[in-house]
């Protein structure tokens, strides 16, 4: 599919368009935000402690209120964007690539390799991922890179299982059999015929996982073992702000809103992409749309 037609398609769907703009905005913030706000995000001003939002007499970084140390919430959000998105994107991609590959292998393999993979995912799945992450982070410490690896590992099974389930269904289809009869190798089969069909589903899961990972990271902060200050993520901001919910709701509300909107946008865009990227579905949509 050509880029220009994709863009046109995107603009025709208002919701997806808005979602795309939000994501671009957030990515933009992640790229330049920390430099833009600079010292405002880390400096201390106890007089402005928990200053309420929409007080425009202060600098713009305080427009969404100030946190418990008097730092502008907006400045903190800008600073946190890079770590937050970095962790989420990296761990989703990592688990999607590894999990998807293993899942396709497991689906195609009729030997012991597939079994080993599935038992491996059973091991991971039979223990709640949050607790596993907690134990591992106790050992490794809450550095962002460790979080990426831990979150990626704990999310592997869902990709493996989904990919495998899809492959089991796809591999019986006529054209796969045809390709097989025509002598296509396993690798060729996996890459050319199966992966493209599995990918959309993985994208759906991945987009939902994007939200999941941000939330898991925030839950780890709630339990005290996520990213550690002075590093900051939106999830950590929500976790830190929760003790002020009764007196200063803005501390956890705004970062929570950023998590929600970003997750929502990723999901909307992914499901739009699923439809846009799949001609048969698009046709189906077209038909039902007029039915």
């Amino acid at each position: 599919m050509r880029n220009s037609s994709l863009l046109a398609l995107l603009r025709s769907d208002r919701v997806a368009f808005v979602a795309a703009i939000w994501l671009m905005l957030v990515v933009g913030i992640a790229l330049v935000g920390p430099e833009v706000v600079g010292k405002a995000a880390t400096g201390l001003d106890l007089r402005a402690r928990n200053a309420p939002p929409f007080d425009f007499s202060r600098g713009w970084v305080h427009w969404l209120g100030s946190d418990a140390l008097g730092r502008g919430i907006l400045a903190r959000i800008f600073l946190a964007a890079r770590t937050t998105l970095g962790i989420a994107v990296a761990s989703v991609l990592l688990s999607m690539v590894i999990g998807g590959t293993l899942g396709i292998i497991a689906g195609l393999s009729r030997g012991s390799l597939g079994k080993v993979i599935m038992r491996g995912t059973d091991v991971i799945m039979s223990f709640p991922s949050l607790l596993m992450a907690l134990i591992v982070l106790y050992v490794l410490g809450g550095a962002p890179a460790n979080l990426v690896v831990v979150l990626a590992i704990t999310r592997l099974p869902v990709y493996v299982r989904t990919a495998r389930a899809e492959v089991l269904e796809i591999r019986e289809r006529a054209f796969i059999n045809a390709a097989r009869v025509m002598g296509a190798g396993q690798v060729h089969l996996a890459l050319r015929h199966i992966a493209p069909l599995v990918l959309p589903t993985l994208f759906i899961i991945g987009s939902l996982d994007f939200a999941y990972v941000m939330l898991a990271e925030s839950a780890l902060s709630f339990l005290g073992m996520g990213v550690q200050p002075p590093s900051i993520t939106w999830g950590l901001m929500v976790a830190e702000g929760r003790s002020y919910l009764n007196s200063a709701w803005w501390l956890s509300f705004w970062p929570g809103l950023f998590i929600m909107l970003t997750a929502l946008s990723a999901n909307l865009l992914a499901s739009w992409f699923r439809i846009a990227g799949d001609p048969t579905l698009r046709a189906a949509q077209g038909n039902t749309g007029h039915a």
Partner: peptide, 25 residues
């Protein structure tokens, strides 16, 4: 049943949004 209908969009939005908020919060 009717993808991209109003119901679909609202339901999608709400369910995704509900899954996007930190649970302890």
């Amino acid at each position: 049943w009717r993808p991209r209908s109003i119901f679909d969009r609202v339901a999608s939005m709400l369910t995704i949004a509900s899954a996007s908020a930190p649970d302890f919060w």
